[in-house]
Design a binder for these strands. Structure first.
Lengths: 129, 129, 129, 129
DNA sequence: GTGGTCTAGACCACC
DNA sequence: GTGGTCTAGACCACA
């Protein structure tokens, strides 16, 4: 399904969240699709079940997935996209840091813009609606 | 000089690093400028000298500043800017995450691009050279 | 595991780094081996956990070890061994100083060469490959 | 005469000592030669007179130079070369560290040996007597 | 005055 | 359990 890097500085549960979001945005995972159970997932990516559970709980809290008692976990149909001012400020601040890091890494403005366009394509042009 | 948020999830020493980079890229701090001493800075931002020291050490490792024994710490000339493939991949991956988060926060592609242009201006058009 | 001299002029954290490198090069520590935890090591060598942590961090930065979140620290596979020009110059300069000091200490050229060969044997002929 | 690097991790006074020893061993400075005064030297290499003084004192303690009251400082005629067991052990230990660092930097055994021979030539074959 | 090292002890996130 | 961060306070070498 995807791979996680236990050596990475970002926590494993966060890596799972990110990967799941990516799969959803790319359309690999569609609304209504059933996710692997916590146990299945934990053996697939070689992680502690508690860690997977934590990721699923957070994804559920964010509304991306839903748990149906006894049936399993599914990709949620409702894509909320609430405009949370606080969240937007955080993202803007993160973007600022990326720009600064990119400058020090010698990356050009155009390169970043190109990457963004590529990613938008990759995401099936999820933006622009 | 700048402010630190001790409640933030990002460690104080990282906040210092980010702020310093920003001051440098904006031209507020110029090559050769003397930084506040570890003790001065620690009292300015109300943090432990060790925490400031950790930030300074990391900035030195990255080549942004240099310390002259017994004299203090100074903004370096930054001759490097070597293209580190690994670093570039990390930045690209971070950008990807930003894009994903932005999508879920309901931010438009154009909005992100506008922010990028604004930041480039703010950074005295450090890019493009 | 090894001993540290708290009276030595070389910092404890550097002594740890050196000893660990030596254990690795001698084959006592093999890739994948788990290192003592920071707390274990600190009680073993009677030093502060922070000091051990500093040594581990530096070893990780150099790529000799890697930490798996919440699981511990392990000897890494060491795929790198990239030829860093700057690093090589530093080593050459250090060698020059050794030669000068050896001359003033009355040590012969042959003696140094013999020591080098002995060490190479001790290191399981790590060189020459 | 020579240059010192205020950014280096090795103290300035030690850098001076090393450079002086190197000049002596290379034959640039010969027994009886007059050294620049502390003030001259400090302005030449842009360092604090106290720092130069500290270096001169240490060199005098080691017997490499001599101060004649009111006349100045001169390269000493007596090259002692006392076989100090403790000093020899220290040098051997330093050599061991160099070998370890060289291994991790990917430098070959032959390369080190070649450097040693080159340096010996540079030192006017000071060794081999 | 400067930064570098170390200790003791605390709290936290992650697994 | 693991390592990561932070504080308070100490001592030292260097310039």
């Amino acid at each position: 399904m995807f791979e996680i890097d236990p050596r990475s500085a970002t926590p494993i549960y966060e890596q799972i969240i990110k990967k799941m979001k990516e799969l959803c945005i790319k359309g690999v995972l569609k609304p209504g699709d059933k996710l692997p159970s916590v146990r299945e997932m934990s053996s697939m990516i070689i992680a502690n079940p508690n860690t997977v559970s934590k990721a699923y709980k957070e994804l559920e809290r964010e509304g991306l997935i839903e748990t149906l008692r006894g049936r399993g976990t599914f990709v949620s149909k409702m894509v909320q996209k609430k405009l949370d001012e606080e969240k937007i400020e955080i993202i803007k601040e993160e973007l600022r840091q990326i720009m600064i890091d990119a400058f020090y890494a010698g990356i050009s403005f155009e390169q970043i813009y190109q990457w963004m366009k590529d990613m938008n394509n990759e995401f099936a042009n999820a933006f622009h609606k």
